[in-house]
Design a protein around this nucleic acid. Structure first.
Lengths: 214, 214
DNA sequence: CAAAAACCGTACCTCGGGTACAGCGTTTCG
DNA sequence: CGAAACGCTGTACCCGAGGTACGGTTTTTG
């Protein structure tokens, strides 16, 4: 890595921590460059403005997130040939990853962009939207595969279920941060797992007590 | 309503629209007072700083939200004696309310505070946290009532299910805004409804043969 | 009618984003 | 080896937005 890219990466890492901790608006350039050990001119050499910083941070964040998803769901597929079981294993692993973060999940840059602290330009929002769309498409494909083998118990649109995954994670992050309780995110992922399990799982699920009449 | 309170309310309404549309940081006081037809001095007469504005906006938002919840779930209880059916009806009504908003849900101020655009003081965050806690407690009570009559199919913590409601709504709002598709929020609420239905519903649920089509 | 409430106007300060350049040491490449 | 490109530093300056200070004015209301 060239010296330029190295500095750039350092700026991005510092900025991301600050943004997730305090928000984009509350993250001042002065503060970032102080920690990165360079001057304002140096900063603007790498990023022409704060928008470009946001854009670069988003791309970095999305790539890191993709790696996590690839990892957990890839390992799920290694551990079971059945797509449903593989997905359930992946979700369990994902919940574990979320729980293992020492200070809770740092937050979701996507949501941060969505609840725009300052006005981001169209490109930034487009990046956020398209990456979420990518995740949804990925989960949708998995769900299709599952549904082929395990017909769903309820008539739910699979696109919506795929969306639900992102919603739960984003919502769970907000809840965790708000309540200062990192475990809430883990629980939400596991609750989504229960949903998937019930939706596609065998009808002969254990039912502790006798069925009640509606 | 005295003239002072009237102006205050006007400021809050204008500010809320702006904040939900552009974020708190991007909402300038100058802009708000221009639309409200008063001067800077007038603004600072009502709110000593932007933090106090945020605090007041939050309280207003929470109260409005409470009214919506009271309404839909109250109507649900009127329409069915069974707590599960009442809750399911309430969720359906909630989804309808979400869908009927002309420009999509304006956004969640709670999440906006969480992804703090500027540094809010402790009191603002405390208000946000305690109101979410209030909602969770409310849903938890409802779920307890349901579980007493309809034993859950899966061993899921009811606190987590109660949390899930808030997570789904917040996540759904983010998704809707990001994708510029208001219907996504409605779908998420209905998906959560399916979850509740499967969790507490009769085991003899209809099982469609073919997988859902896109 | 008088006091309190609800403002207006002006002036001024600070901080953060951002621009404009001029220059300087290091790397790279013909 | 020399020139160009890269990766910065330093200074100076502009602007908008939050915020303070304070005196004056109108409007409400008891």
């Amino acid at each position: 890595m060239g010296k330029g890219l190295e500095t750039r990466e350092r700026i991005l890492a510092i900025a991301e921590m600050s943004v997730l901790a305090k928000g984009f608006g509350a993250t001042s350039i002065d503060e970032v460059i102080a920690e990165a050990g360079l001057t304002k001119s140096g900063f603007f050499y790498h990023f022409k403005d704060k928008n470009e910083l946001a854009r670069a941070m988003l791309l970095r964040y999305v790539a890191a997130n993709d790696r996590v998803f690839d990892d957990v769901f890839g390992r799920g597929r290694q551990l079971s040939d059945d797509p449903l079981q593989a997905f359930l294993i992946g979700l369990k692993l994902l919940a574990e990853v979320m729980a293992d973060l020492p200070n809770g999940h740092p937050g979701c840059l996507i949501a941060s962009v969505c609840y725009q602290e300052r006005m981001f330009d169209r490109e930034v929002r487009a990046i956020a939207a398209s990456s979420v769309q990518g995740w949804n498409a990925r989960f949708r494909a998995t769900l299709d595969e599952i549904a082929r083998l395990h017909p769903p118990r309820e008539a739910v649109d699979l696109d919506t279920v795929a969306d639900m995954m992102s919603c739960i994670v984003d919502g769970g992050i907000i809840m965790s941060k708000l309540m200062a309780d990192p475990r809430r995110l883990e629980h939400q992922v596991l609750a989504f797992r229960s949903f998937v399990k019930m939706l596609f799982g065998p009808a002969a699920a254990v039912r502790p007590v006798q069925p009640a009449t509606a």
